[in-house]
Design a protein around this nucleic acid. Sequence first.
DNA 1: TTCCAGACATGATAATGATCATATGTGATC
DNA 2: GATCACATATGATCATTATCATGTCTGGAA
Lengths: 181, 181
Amino acid sequence: MIIIMSGNFAEHLMERAEKRRVMEKGAFLFHEGDEVQSVFIVEEGVVELTRPQLDGTAITLQRATDLTILAEASVYSRVYHCDAVASMPALVSQLSRSAFLANLKKDQHFSELWSVHLAKEVQSARYRSEILTKKTVRERLDAWLAFVDHDMPAKGCWKNVAEQLGVSPEAFYREMARRNA
Amino acid sequence: MIIIMSGNFAEHLMERAEKRRVMEKGAFLFHEGDEVQSVFIVEEGVVELTRPQLDGTAITLQRATDLTILAEASVYSRVYHCDAVASMPALVSQLSRSAFLANLKKDQHFSELWSVHLAKEVQSARYRSEILTKKTVRERLDAWLAFVDHDMPAKGCWKNVAEQLGVSPEAFYREMARRNA
DNA sequence: TTCCAGACATGATAATGATCATATGTGATC
DNA sequence: GATCACATATGATCATTATCATGTCTGGAA
């Protein structure tokens, strides 16, 4: 019988955290080009991973909120390929990369949870991509609903959902109104 | 000193493959709801992962071509959450899940490569998402170029790139023409 | 209660791209 | 060389959405 790993990896990671850090809005956790020395978990607030473009605009690669691990892939890189900035005041736990890798090596269970975590992230990131290939608000919402098992978003969340779908709030409101009619 | 793992995980996986399978166009590798029993690597051809929707349309979650591992996340699931169908004739290697997991357990190096592979997939999937949140062809191409270090796509690839960007070929050709002018 | 910020709602306009139609170029095959 | 498939190219039209403007509603703070 195959045992499927479960449990929240972020929590396991937090148990091993070495430091905590309070970040004010606008504070940087790291910059592009910095050496990767730690693994970070956002406990509260919001930290965004952004990659500045040549033309001055920026791409947001990840928007990390409660219990989200930041820039997982950087664990295996020498330097960061993006900036991390608190877009809201945030509380961040951290663990040195060497300690993290040592944990992976010596703790089989921890290592498996890490893989499971990464696999889940792959899955949800792929799904998000596919939602965004849809061109109309209607199709994107349909795809999103399939992903969340068709529970309609509560009114307070509409704006956030609209952002996840990559559409303007107005367009989203209109689509929701259309569905009620 | 931290050793960063490198090498192609798919190749390591193929070395351990137990079976090979030739698939005709349109043939299914597995269906939604099937028990996960194997890990698959596409050697040649194309296999697509699709998730049928209520309205009859389908979401394509992954389009696997040469040396791509199929549905990584399914390794940790009991059943598949999507269909896998060859959209072109394909050659697929497979390894039973139990053997795969056993390899992960006993071979530290293999296990690390697996994590590195997953981390890279997370990274590229996230990047793809962010490209797709851009609304105009121009912005999407800019973001894509930043990702591939600004090497312009060769003419034979344009159609493929257009698809990656989630825009129609025509719109893509026009944008490329605009940039030459 | 009063005030205020922010989400929700809706109309008008302009920008943008999907789609359809059609044409050109190019490499492979016979 | 003739032919075929397919990528590239370009024009015209139409559907859709972003954006701006403006207004309403609701929950929390004073």
